[in-house]
Write a protein that binds this DNA or RNA. Structure first.
Lengths: 211, 211
DNA sequence: AAGAAAATGTGGTCTGACCACCTAAAGATT
DNA sequence: AATCTTTAGGTGGTCAGACCACATTTTCTT
């Protein structure tokens, strides 16, 4: 699988997953249908068979395909497995998917700020402020406290997943906020001023208006 | 990797995953540590390097390891299986969990309204309004359109999961909004007035101020 | 026509060979 | 001696070819 010289050398098997999805869509293949053999895919996609297999192994692990020795590889009926669909979203590591992760993380964090604001008392936020003053604030720790204050276990889980994937992206454009930014946000929460809170968050995350 | 003759011939890469786990445990390897190279594993486990790679690819997809070209393969800091944890959240059907689902669904829908508002043009919302007028509006259909307008595949997936679970609850306290409520919301979107939009949603969902 | 054997196609696996990249050791320079 | 440069070795990434085990299809025998 030839790569443009100066291009980011994505892993071949990721690219194969993408192209395989195109083939499935173009040919209108559905659950239960057979997909081309490993050797044929290897030829059509100009890739080694081992690379094709790595891609298929990935899809198999996600339950998207099923391989039967001596027969072939078949598309699996995964329209019930929501979590797999969620995961598969992440696997397609195109720019849009990454952007979606970042955007969603921001929205969830904003939600947590609002939830915390409506559920918690001034006392809780005073403690948050005090903690912010007394410690060397790490982003992950600060927002873990925020999400805790939101008191919604489900959102907590979703946020956790988002953070993990966000970190796995290894984005080098992460703008590390200063301690003052966190302190400002904590104070806004303490005052109970929603507008102020939301604004402090956007400044902290270096957002103008768009996500 | 030799197999006992009459034994179930499990796939080698699955067996490699198992043995690799043993190695990690026996050697006391932790997050951030380097695991043996592909070639060394190939020797120690009496398996081909391609099989070892299929196993590593699987672990990589699950976020358990991280491969760095030219350096090696490292154990990743994964805090439990995230997806399983998410699932377990759904299974715990206590009142708090249910409440969390409802609350989260509301937050996500509000997020989508805001995203749509910031991303879409008046034209899109006019079409939404027109559709609302011409059809017998079902809640699921209306908000599917909203989520689509938000143009974030990840949020779409999350929302889908929430809706499915929400429906499985069979809540008999679902307050079915009138057609006018949806129309009001569509018009608010068309006007581009965020406050009006959020308010229209709260009225539609019969929320006062708390979620 | 029915059963048996061979041919074909498929996934499963191993081996060996490159390449691109990173790191550290050896060497050269100052 | 300290520092920089070069080199060698290790590592993941990929490809090609070769078998094997298994299932299906075709062909051949009876």
């Amino acid at each position: 699988m030839l790569m443009s010289p100066n291009e980011q050398s994505k892993k071949v098997y990721i690219e194969i997953v993408r192209q395989l999805r195109e083939i499935i869509e173009k040919d209108g293949l559905k659950a239960g249908d057979k997909i081309p053999s490993e050797r044929e895919l290897s030829e059509r996609l100009n890739a080694g068979r081992s690379s094709v297999r790595e891609a298929l192994r990935a899809l198999e692990l996600l339950g998207l395909i099923e391989t039967r020795r001596g027969e072939g590889t078949y598309i699996r009926d995964f329209r019930g497995n929501q979590l797999v669909q969620l995961l598969s979203t992440f696997i397609l590591q195109d720019k849009k998917a990454i952007q979606d992760v970042v955007e969603t993380k921001h929205m969830i964090e904003l939600d947590c700020l609002q939830l915390a604001l409506s559920k918690r008392s001034k006392n809780d936020f005073q403690r948050l402020k005090q903690w912010t003053i007394e410690h060397n604030v790490e982003d992950i720790d600060f927002f873990t406290r925020i999400v805790d204050l939101a008191d919604n276990h489900l959102i907590y889980r979703i946020w956790k997943i988002l953070v993990d994937y966000y970190r796995s992206l290894n984005r080098n454009d992460f703008h590390k906020p200063t301690k003052e930014r966190y302190l400002e946000l904590a104070e806004a929460l303490e005052k109970g001023d929603e507008e102020w809170v939301l604004n402090a968050y956007r400044i902290l995350r270096n957002l103008s208006d768009e996500s």
